[in-house]
Design a protein around this nucleic acid. Structure first.
Lengths: 255, 255
DNA sequence: TGTACATCAGTGAACGCGCGTTCACTGATGTAC
DNA sequence: TGTACATCAGTGAACGCGCGTTCACTGATGTAC
């Protein structure tokens, strides 16, 4: 996972407009449209049957074309999976970004909560897409490097808040005086490369723990591990997640 | 997930001895042996190719028997999956239990750490079995109730420690004076049923967060999400997890 | 102890299905003169 | 503006593969008299 701290706004989602201006020739226009239809059909299949059942033949059937025709638009099943993965990361990232953008800039807790809630809501709304990116990896599949930037959009948002909290100088004493074992400090090196020297080891450690905690909680909820642990009546899961978010925020010193 | 706070020792793992005394007739003996061979072959296939690729035909091939013969021992692919799931939960639970049992009873932190480390080590050693139980659920598959008890073994261990910590009366003030929103308190009701009235809402909330955090961290490590976040040189991941464990223990007041 | 019958393990063929991917080909669209 | 050629989309058949599951059948093991 990379953490490019700027320029994420130029990453365009597969499901949004393409960046190359409107295609001119009829062929290009048709090509764009059908590519879009294929990806939409793939998303539909993903939503209903899950990633393992995703099949190029089924997509072709869905669109009423010969199965071989799909290969004019998609190189292979793996390539399609990659596109769906990138799309899912972008969709999630966009959801988190727009939610965060709605909060008052100076309200770090509000921005933080908005991101966490957005991640969880997106996961609930798109369980199979969530499983595609945060569930068990597909055995043979290796994610190409293009997935890295989209995959880090949420983390970038969270990191930015931690940096602002540090810059504000209002982190509580138990965090500014906190530290991390030398070995752990070394293990945090890759992350440090992206975050820079401003945040303390302890804050980074806390940030990573909260980050993994967030996805751990969402995964457990989505994958059924909270059954008979946290109530699933109306609003109960939301209340529980809200309590988690409040505490995560405290752990990184913004509440 | 159920949390039966007693009687877990009687749960026998599929890969250990069966509880019915030694089978008498040659038929029964052979049946037990071949059942065992089938499950072993399934475990081997699971380890190398992952759960999605698990196939009854491949197992039959592996054992040199007709594919139809496997149906004398296993009702269906789903039933085999269930057995593997139960076996995985039991294997993980057993690893955690024996690790915990080696620590001094009065050393709550030592017991806690032993469990967390055992979970992570087991996951690293058995990535596909871990993915089978904590990764994305298989779309069509529904886990039968027999999986519930084995699935809760680790949680039972952790819960017991929290109860002992409460009973000891040595929980730090920030935990005993801590509380949880009324809505969150209500959401914790299912868990409370198993834990009883002794532990406070705040401690239970903290416990669940740490529990989800543990699996979140292990899943992220195993599923590649920590790539370029936490160093993967010798000992780095271990140092990072150790730092996490230390902090989780502090969050539930046992360090 | 010996025989008749019931039970069970294992075989091999088959059903019916789906998949990813390739390939030679037709016919439409785009381009250069 | 009109024609010749190149490009590309889409077809349909085929290859080769694997899967879960069923079924009629053979032959061995177990049991009851």
């Amino acid at each position: 996972m990379l953490l490019p701290l700027s320029g994420c706004a130029t990453i365009s989602s597969m499901t949004t407009q393409t960046e190359k201006s409107i295609p001119r020739t009829a062929r290009e226009r048709a090509r764009a449209e059908i590519t879009r239809e294929i990806l939409d059909a793939a998303l539909r299949q993903l939503a209903t049957d899950g990633a393992p059942a995703l099949s190029l033949r089924a997509i072709a059937r869905d669109l009423g074309m010969a199965s071989s025709a799909v290969y004019r638009y998609v190189a292979s099943r793996d390539e399609l999976l990659t596109r769906l993965i990138i799309d899912a990361y972008n969709s999630l990232g966009e959801a988190a970004e727009t939610a965060e953008a709605r909060a008052d800039r100076s309200d770090l807790l509000g921005r933080w909560s908005a991101i966490c809630i957005a991640v969880r809501s997106w996961a609930i709304a798109n369980p199979n897409r969530y499983a595609l990116i945060y569930g068990s990896p597909v055995p043979g599949y290796v994610a190409p490097p293009d997935t890295v930037a989209p995959a880090s959009r949420v983390a970038v948002l969270l990191t930015r808040i931690l940096l602002e909290a540090t810059a504000s100088g209002r982190l509580p004493a138990e965090i500014t005086s906190d530290s991390v074992s030398p070995a752990a400090s070394k293990a945090l090196a890759p992350l440090r490369k992206f975050i820079g020297p401003d945040a303390s080891d302890a804050l980074i450690q806390r940030g990573v723990m909260v980050w993994t905690g967030l996805y751990g909680a969402v995964s457990f909820e989505l994958f059924g591990q909270l059954h008979d642990v946290i109530g699933d009546g109306p609003g109960e899961r939301e209340a529980w997640i809200a309590e988690c978010i409040r505490r995560w925020a405290m752990q990184v010193g913004i509440a």
